[in-house]
């Protein structure tokens, strides 16, 4: 699994648009993630679930994107929800004081059951 690339793959579970993210999110590629999220919002998606389970590395560039996208979602009467935050990646969310800033579920299954 490449540590330097950002991988993104989308799918649907009923009305929920799921984006599986893997690899690395940093200031070099965070814009790609933002573009993808804005694309979902402009195509009318109302519930976007971001699965971080395969993210190996991220910097605050990822947090910036999530905060911007969450605001944009609100303007579109949509929501962005996170799941799969584990280990060192989850710790970074804690250090940034961001775990409370988003709606966070445990696993993808937990999230889908709650949405």
């Amino acid at each position: 699994m490449s540590k330097t690339a950002l991988r993104m793959e989308d799918s649907h579970a009923g009305p929920v648009c799921i984006l599986s993210i893997g690899g690395r999110i940093d200031s070099g590629n965070a814009e790609d993630l933002l573009n993808r999220l804005n694309g979902f919002l402009s195509s009318g998606e109302k519930t976007i679930l971001l699965d971080f389970r395969e993210v190996l590395y991220l910097t605050s560039a990822a947090f910036r994107v999530l905060l911007v996208a969450t605001d944009e979602a609100e303007r579109n009467a949509a929501r962005v929800v996170l799941c799969g935050l584990v280990g060192q990646v989850r710790e970074l969310f804690e250090m940034g004081g961001l775990l409370e800033a988003f709606t966070v579920h445990g696993s993808r299954e937990d999230a889908l059951a709650a949405l």
């Binding site: 605050s60 947090f63 910036r64 905060l67 970074l92 250090m95 940034g96 004081g97 961001l98 800033a101």
Partner: peptide, 23 residues
């Protein structure tokens, strides 16, 4: 970073430095 008010999301600025200090 400014203290986040209840019910408000933090603004992006300053998160990176805040994290760096803990890392």
């Amino acid at each position: 970073r400014d203290k986040t008010l209840p019910g408000q999301r933090p603004r992006p600025g300053g998160v990176g430095v805040r994290m760096t200090k803990q890392l």
